[in-house]
């Protein structure tokens, strides 16, 4: 399973409809070990949906998705086990409202991985330290700022020691002054070699951190490129239009 040639995430010809809306059109995308892939595109382009199909929070109509070469299992214990190895960070943080920050980070390692209480706690404290919210550990989510909540949510995902992390617009719900602190944590993760698939609107961050940019529009991947080429001379007309619409703002 540690074969470095097998992509960690491998999406093959995925198609999906929401009723009449064709949200994913023949998507093929792979993310290799240690790679940081950033998906950008206009809203409604299907990038969040794609991100959510990878741990089957959304199903696909046809095609297949493999994690380390293994197809995603259908609903059940095997799917839960697979999900536990892929970290996910949401736009709206989604911390458990009735637990303290520390309990949030300890819960899944204890319940899902049956890890020893003391070890789970120590690791959680290390992770909270790493994302800079250790001093908030005994508060409940509602007492934290959005940026702090999102960093705690990243710690919660990391506590499962995931093979890859999915970020679904992690800074879109944050006040501008809090975006930086979350992006800093993500940049550090990328530097540590974490395999990451990131949906974001933060273009400077994408340019700095991505190994590869995937540009989506109307449910299809329009362009896959290096960050430098994508932002300096995109190959596709739609990518050019998208980037210039951002500059006009």
């Amino acid at each position: 399973m540690t074969d470095n040639n097998v992509p960690v995430i491998d999406v093959r010809h995925a198609d999906k409809h929401f009723g009449k809306l064709h949200v994913l059109r023949d998507i093929s995308l792979s993310v290799n070990r240690g790679e940081v892939v950033v998906i950008i595109g206009p809203s409604g382009s299907g990038k969040s949906t794609l991100c959510r199909t990878i741990n089957r929070l959304e199903t696909i109509d046809s095609g297949e998705i493999l994690i380390e070469g293994v197809p995603i299992p259908p609903e059940g214990k095997k799917l839960a086990a697979m999900r536990s190895r892929i970290g996910m960070v949401f736009q709206s943080f989604n911390l458990f409202a009735h637990m303290t920050i520390l309990e949030n980070v300890v819960a899944a390692p204890r319940s899902v991985l049956r890890r020893n209480k003391k070890e789970a706690r120590e690791e959680a404290l290390r992770l909270l330290e790493r994302v800079g919210v250790a001093d908030q550990k005994d508060k409940v989510p509602a007492q934290l700022s959005g940026g702090q909540q999102q960093r705690a949510a990243i710690a919660r995902a990391l506590a499962m020691r995931p093979k890859a992390m999915l970020f679904d617009e992690p800074t879109s719900a944050l006040d501008p002054e809090m975006i930086g602190e979350v992006l800093t944590v993500m940049t550090e993760l990328a530097a540590d070699g974490m395999t990451m698939l990131i949906v974001t609107h933060e273009m400077n961050f994408a340019r700095r951190v991505a190994d590869r940019i995937v540009f989506m529009d109307e449910g299809a991947i329009v362009e896959e490129n290096t960050p430098k080429e994508f932002f300096e001379c995109p190959r596709s007309r739609r990518a050019r239009d998208f980037l210039s619409s951002l500059r006009d703002r």
Binding site: F93, N94, F96, A108, S111
Partner: peptide, 26 residues
């Protein structure tokens, strides 16, 4: 919030783990 349920599923909670740890207490 539905997001908490999604987060629990994404973390690998089974239905009963989620019910016991997340849903019933709240």
């Amino acid at each position: 919030s539905p997001g908490q349920i999604e987060a629990a599923r994404a973390l690998g909670f089974t239905f009963f783990q989620m019910i016991l740890r997340i849903v019933i207490p709240q």
